[in-house]
Amino acid sequence: MISRQEVEYVAHLARLEIDDAHKDKFTAQLNDILLYIDKLNELDTKGIEPLSHAIAVTNAFREDGVLDSLGTAEALANAPDARGEFFRVPKVIE
């Protein structure tokens, strides 16, 4: 079971804020889902290799050649706040 405190901690890890009014409802919904997922423990999976991709994928290498890239102006075009050649953000340290 996931507690209200754990919900707060996970929200912090995910860079989210859950307001107090929704915290209980969210905790209950997450518990419903996690309880359902516990079904997987009915299965013995000892020694089974985990499957991350259904198709055998290997690293897709290419020659290290110089190709066209986006360019600064286009890369910054969607920025909520840009100055010069940089993305501008609120202060990082005190």
Binding site: R15, N78, A79, P80, F87, V89, P90, K91, V92
Partner: peptide, 17 residues
């Protein structure tokens, strides 16, 4: 909120943003 899309206003610092 850095490279594209919405950015919330009135944040105290980067983490808060």
């Amino acid at each position: 909120g850095v490279k594209y899309g919405l950015r919330a206003a009135a944040a105290r610092d980067l983490l808060d943003m």
